[in-house]
Design a protein around this nucleic acid. Structure first.
Length: 371
RNA sequence: GCGGAUAUGGUGAAGUGGUUAACACGGUGGAUUGUGGUUCCAUUAUUCGUGGGUUCGAUCCCCACUAUUCGUC
């Protein structure tokens, strides 16, 4: 069965909406934040720990799993869920972004992308068909179309060609998609160009995907430009399908995205900054490595309901991080994931109450206040 | 007691008779948006054991002292 999206409520003062996403692995509320588990694991955490953050969907990655262990091994294990012992829904990214972000040299051809992998430099060729076939075998709940994610900035001319190519690739992927239990999302590109965002959205929607994502953000553009990219894409997306803003997960960006009509977010930020010793708090991001936490025997946030905050102090986590102990990264990952998921829970309540704008203003005021 | 060697930042250390004393670690800050778990950036000795001397100029040469260290009685 494919996913099913039910629009429950549209907020009065913004484009935000509450919905329900029904998957083969449970039904979940949107807007939602999806933790990233590139290599079939949310780094440092067990599935139980991720679920304890009240998470729903997690991400995994076609490109990385293709290289190792290989999609056939995952299929032999019984699919990604069994392989990694995760019974919640999984979304796989197509590998398009990795080609853009990891490959030093790449040749973007009509047929696909020729590049050298980041592990041993082997020459590889990834096509839209191959990406979808790999994802079919991985057996994720949601697969992504193979797209080109151009850097910022490129010329209008280049972006126009790229958008057309991504549309052709989307169609080709759709044509070979066979897994009836797997949904397929299309991706809107177009960079910062208003006309191309519209064109990309309108043409992608014509292909009737199970959901739509907005790609090509967080590639070096400023925040204002990123918000405009969303504004220039969302109006052309159907209301009865989920909308996914790829790769975005800064707390403020989530609020800005939700108020513009986004339902799903994913981001490596909570787990990556955790490994580097940083924690989200309501009054901004803090760096646990800072000397001022050496003797701070209070939790990261008194009011946080996560496992980390109910058991450990800043001084202890700082000690773990500065000693390069993996537990430090684990505890911070748990807190940061819970922080973003709690943010979406609060957002949903305020959508229900039509008070999202006030909440957003208050949140941003606290988050950006200098401590 | 005698003989030798060495003294450079928090640590390990390079180095040169001439305006800014390598590099590494550590420290301190910052970054991180479809993953960089061991990443990236910035900053961190107005000063080369102490005192004298030579010199236009000494961390570098000379002397004394002190400390460390090795050998020896």
């Amino acid at each position: 069965m494919k996913i099913k999206y039910d629009l429950l409520k549209e907020e009065k003062n913004t484009s935000a909406r509450n919905g329900l996403l029904c998957t083969n692995h449970g039904t979940y509320k949107t807007p939602m934040f999806m933790p990233v588990g590139t290599l079939a694991n949310v780094k440092m955490l067990t599935p139980e720990e991720v679920k304890a953050c009240n998470s729903a969907i997690i991400l995994s990655n076609t490109y990385h799993l293709w290289l190792r262990p290989g999609e056939d091994i995952v299929a032999k294990a019984g699919g990604l869920h069994k392989f990694m012992n995760y019974d919640g829904p999984i979304l796989t990214d197509s590998g398009g972004f990795q080609v853009f972000s990891l490959a030093k040299k790449k040749d973007i051809l009509e047929e696909g992308v020729k590049f050298k992998n980041h592990l041993n430099g082997d020459s590889l060729f990834l096509t839209p068909e191959l990406s979808i076939q790999i994802q079919n075998k991985l057996d994720s709940d949601i697969a992504m179309s193979f797209d080109e994610c151009p850097p910022f900035p490129v010329t209008h001319d280049y972006m126009e060609q790229s958008v057309d190519r991504t549309l052709r690739w989307a169609k080709r992927g759709q044509n070979v998609h066979q897994n009836v239990n797997q949904s397929l999302f299309g991706i809107v590109q177009g960079g910062e160009f208003k006309d191309l965002r519209k064109y990309s959205a309108v043409e992608t929607v014509k292909m009737n995907f199970d959901g739509y994502s907005i790609g090509g953000t967080s590639v070096g553009e400023d925040k204002k430009t990123m918000y405009e990219m969303i504004d220039n894409s969302v109006p052309y997306l159907p209301k009865n399908k989920p909308r996914y803003l790829m790769g975005v997960g800064d707390p403020i960006d989530i609020l800005e995205g939700v108020t513009r009509g986004i339902d799903m977010f994913d981001c490596v930020l909570p787990t990556r900054i955790a490994r580097h010793g940083n924690a989200f708090t309501r009054s901004g991001k803090i760096n646990l490595k800072n000397a001022k936490y050496k003797e701070d025997f209070t939790p990261i946030e008194e009011e946080c309901d996560c496992y980390t905050c109910s058991h450990y102090t800043k001084a202890y986590i700082r000690h773990l991080i500065t000693s390069n102990e993996a537990l430090g990264g684990r505890l911070l990952s748990i807190h940061n994931i819970r922080f973003l998921i709690k943010l979406t829970e609060d957002i949903r309540e305020h959508i229900e109450a039509d008070t999202l704008l006030e909440y957003k203003e208050e949140f941003i005021k606290n988050y950006t206040k200098k401590q």
